[in-house]
Design a protein around this nucleic acid. Structure first.
Ligand SMILES: [Mn+2]
Ligand SMILES: [Mn+2]
Ligand SMILES: [Zn+2]
Ligand SMILES: [Zn+2]
Lengths: 158, 158
DNA sequence: TAGTTATTGAAAACGGTTTTCATTATCAAT
DNA sequence: ATTGATAATGAAAACCGTTTTCAATAACTA
């Protein structure tokens, strides 16, 4: 259990509204999938979501999970990551319920640690870099990914 | 054609030596694959390499390309990237022939631009971040990936 | 040169994701 | 509420990059 339940309710209603605005229909499978994403603070794979949804809605298929994830990603409501473990992983996009952060990835056990420290200094560097790069390469920067790879404490001491 | 041919020759001889040191045999397919990597400044996929090698050595198989790439990656001589186009891509690891750099990735055409600018300020930020993160999370940082996503100039004006 | 065994190529298997297609559910108009 | 147009769904099959299997071959050592 993470955070209060009230905020998540808001989030879901917000999502539904955005969905309708874009001309999409709000369906039971989509609601269920969005609930799983909104309730979790993990980096979920399609199968993770499928299995969780399956407990309450056994007839929702994995295909629909993939389709909904693509939709939400295209709409910018979630973010798709590749952490190098052979499957895509998803989390809420930056917003009221999710702070800007980056990841430490353990090369041995694949554990992912989120950090929000150093974000101020990072923003400083990123802003200057983005400005310089945009000018030099005429490249319209929309986002960035920073991953640190290494060995976590649990793995270091065997 | 990029850079002089002499340096690349050195590079290849160096690679061969390292190979032997690790107890691996230096074979014709491996040499061919390493030559393709050493001669290119692109971000090559396994199939890219396979097709190039195939021109000179039609009997070298794709399987061997994959096996050699894994070997070179594990030995730290090349780096494996995921740029989000569904296949792994490889390039020379940082060294005398390859400067430290990061990537701008066009979300539309998937073009990859390498940049080495702002690396000094970046190193400044990265050093502080790595120091802080290592301490706080007891995480032994070995490397990092910084990707900027956006729209390249060619795509921006349609 | 011979013998040990690492390396190889072809084919099959693998696994995450996407496509196909007939059926069902959603939603606006009645 | 009922209807009708059509967006969305689930099961199965296809897809495709990568890995595994295994008998044949080539590279090193003695
Ligand atoms: Mn995260
Ligand atoms: Mn590069
Ligand atoms: Zn670990
Ligand atoms: Zn582009």
């Amino acid at each position: 259990m993470q955070r209060g339940g009230g905020r998540r309710g808001m989030l879901r209603r917000g999502w539904g509204g955005k969905f309708k605005e874009c001309g999409y229909r709000m369906t039971v499978p989509r609601k269920a999938i969005m609930d799983v994403l909104g309730d979790s603070d993990k980096h979920l794979s399609a199968e993770d979501i499928y299995l969780t949804v399956h407990r309450s809605y056994p007839n929702v298929g994995l295909t629909t999970v993939y389709r909904t994830l693509e939709l939400l990603t295209d709409m910018g409501m979630i973010v798709k990551f590749d952490f190098g473990d052979g499957r895509a992983r998803y989390e809420l996009a930056e917003g009221p319920d999710k702070k800007h952060h980056h990841h430490l990835i353990c090369r041995r056990c694949k554990r992912i640690i989120e950090y929000t420290e150093f974000i101020d200094e990072e923003m400083d560097f990123l802003n200057r870099a983005e400005k310089g790069l945009s000018e030099k390469y005429k490249f319209d920067i929309k986002g960035h990914v920073i991953h640190f790879y290494g060995i976590c404490d649990k793995c270091r001491y065997k």
